[in-house]
Design a protein around this nucleic acid. Structure first.
Lengths: 104, 104
DNA sequence: AGTACGTGTAACCATTTGGTTGTAGATTAT
DNA sequence: ATAATCTACAACCAAATGGTTACACGTACT
């Protein structure tokens, strides 16, 4: 999970994820869109791949990158779970009040 | 957004968020739960505060920390938006096919 | 065969991160 | 008044990040 959130903590990488979710793109096609070096973009893609947010498919000399929505869903699930803790933050208190042993 | 995801990219910090979402806790009460130094936990809380994931309320000599679900929702919203791109990844193609000028 | 292209990796650099210890200020307890 | 507690912050350190340039290797083009 650390790697997923860490990978998403960079605007360039979030942008790459958004692009490759709508359609496969080669690494060099991605690199052409950013003002940094090819190597930098290649490293960003490697980080995303390490986090499972992106999958590479080799084809000849190029690698096509596509997004993996499953991993996004995992991260979103964790956030939803945390928000659930907030929503149910009084449940323990409710349990106490509902406890028959306290009912006298 | 960078700071939100970066703050969540650490297991200790995610744990802190989970704890303070269910109820306020002082910084030292939090620190007592982890095996690192007080200063380390204090820094983690500061990172979470900088990301807006957590809010501190001063009371006497201690600061009570509570979670801020709004920021979590923002992050979750971004993920949902990205997943939406995936879900609608053929919409542009659909638009092309639906284009009357191409219907001949 | 030779050249150009796409990718990965290594070496390097500046900055950030996650941890430590120590110190200082403010508040509370004795 | 003194001591203990809670918090913040500074200085330091090792490791990770995000970027660079240069090079090596496999594939495609002419």
């Amino acid at each position: 999970m650390n790697r997923i959130f860490r990978a998403l903590a960079d605007a360039t990488r979030r942008d790459i994820v958004a692009r490759v979710l709508t359609g496969e793109q080669s690494v060099s096609a991605l690199a052409a869109r950013y003002e940094m070096s090819f190597a930098a973009v290649q490293k960003h893609v490697a980080v995303l791949e390490g986090a499972g947010l992106v999958i590479k498919r080799p084809s000849g000399r190029e690698r096509f990158v596509r997004g993996n929505p499953e991993r996004l869903a995992r991260a979103r699930g964790l956030l939803a779970q945390l928000e659930g803790l907030w929503r149910d933050r009084f449940s323990q208190l409710d349990t106490v009040f509902a406890d028959p042993s306290l009912r006298e």
